[in-house]
């Protein structure tokens, strides 16, 4: 399966499941990080992610610039997240809730607290401002999204990411030092 995006997009548009699978494999981390940066629970994040992929299926024959598919998906995922957030306390689609051991973002994070180092890090992370948490969740996502994708996911200018990242890391570092001082 060739891995150039324009080929994958047009092949997927013809119903080629292997091409579609390659697209999903390449970007599912980005879509997931975007939903989690918006602090959705696991069930909500799953709905937002699925909404994003369905939107892409709808638009496969109309993607104008396949090379920038990551940014398109990040923008779409952001919109799906906002919709779910704004649906607010309405009872959300949760047919698939059974698929998660637990439902809340907090519970997922609790599972991440495997090491004390991480625990301190998480405490510091949650103490900094939300915009910083959102940005760092994406900038430091495991599959390293591009700045263009991060900008699309958060609706901020590409040029703002570098300086904001530095400022947020600085805040996190200072907060972490305070946490560690408290432990001593």
């Amino acid at each position: 399966m060739p891995c150039e995006l324009p080929t994958l997009v047009s092949e997927a548009g013809n119903g080629n499941q292997a091409a579609w699978g390659a697209i999903v494999d390449r970007f599912s981390g980005l879509v997931w990080s975007t939903t989690r940066a918006h602090r959705l629970s696991a069930a909500e994040a799953a709905d937002a992610a699925q909404g994003t992929w369905l939107r892409l299926v709808e638009n496969l024959d109309r993607i104008e610039d396949p090379e920038r598919l990551g940014a398109w998906l990040a923008t779409t995922a952001r919109r799906e997240c906002l919709r779910i957030i704004r649906m607010g306390k309405r009872e959300m689609p949760s047919d698939e809730e059974w698929m998660f051991e637990s439902d809340s973002g907090e519970a997922i994070e609790a599972r991440l607290l495997t090491r004390e180092r991480d625990e301190t890090l998480w405490r510091a992370f949650h103490a900094i401002e939300e915009r910083c948490q959102e940005l760092l969740r994406l900038v430091c996502a495991p599959d390293a999204p591009t700045y263009e994708e991060v900008a699309a996911a958060l609706a901020i200018p590409v040029g703002a990411i570098g300086p904001t990242r530095a400022r947020c890391l600085d805040k996190l570092r200072r907060r972490l030092e305070e946490e560690q001082a408290d432990l001593r």
């Binding site: 499941q17 699978g21 599912s28 981390g29 997931w32 799953a46 698929m99």
Partner: peptide, 13 residues
């Protein structure tokens, strides 16, 4: 450690 749940990827595919 907050990896994409496999059911989410399967549903996407």
């Amino acid at each position: 450690a907050d990896a994409v749940p496999s059911r989410v990827t399967e549903a996407a595919k």
